[in-house]
């Protein structure tokens, strides 16, 4: 995959803070573990809907999970 888009995220850190595995977070938001993995590794940029679901699952505002890099 070559969809390395400039969107920073703290998904791995926030997931670890909640003590969740990738599979557990994936189950909460209804995607595969691979999708969580690719988002964490910034290989895949999720849709707005998935971003909001992830933020809700981690109980934080979406901008705390995803941010645009400072130009």
């Amino acid at each position: 995959m070559s969809d390395l888009v400039a969107l920073e995220n703290r998904l791995r850190e926030l997931r670890a803070r909640h003590g969740l595995t990738q599979a557990q977070l994936a189950e909460r938001v209804g995607v595969t573990r691979k999708t969580i993995n690719t988002v964490e590794n910034r290989v895949f940029v999720p849709s707005a809907i998935l971003a909001l679901k992830l933020a809700r699952a981690l109980d934080v505002p979406v901008e705390e999970v995803f941010t645009l890099p400072v130009e």
């Binding site: 995959m1 969809d3 994936a26 209804g30 995607v31 595969t32 691979k34 999708t35 690719t38 895949f44 999720p46 849709s47 998935l50």
Partner: peptide, 12 residues
């Protein structure tokens, strides 16, 4: 099916 055919699958 909905989980397996998630948005990463659709993208691929």
């Amino acid at each position: 099916q909905a989980v397996i055919e998630d948005e990463l699958f659709q993208h691929h």
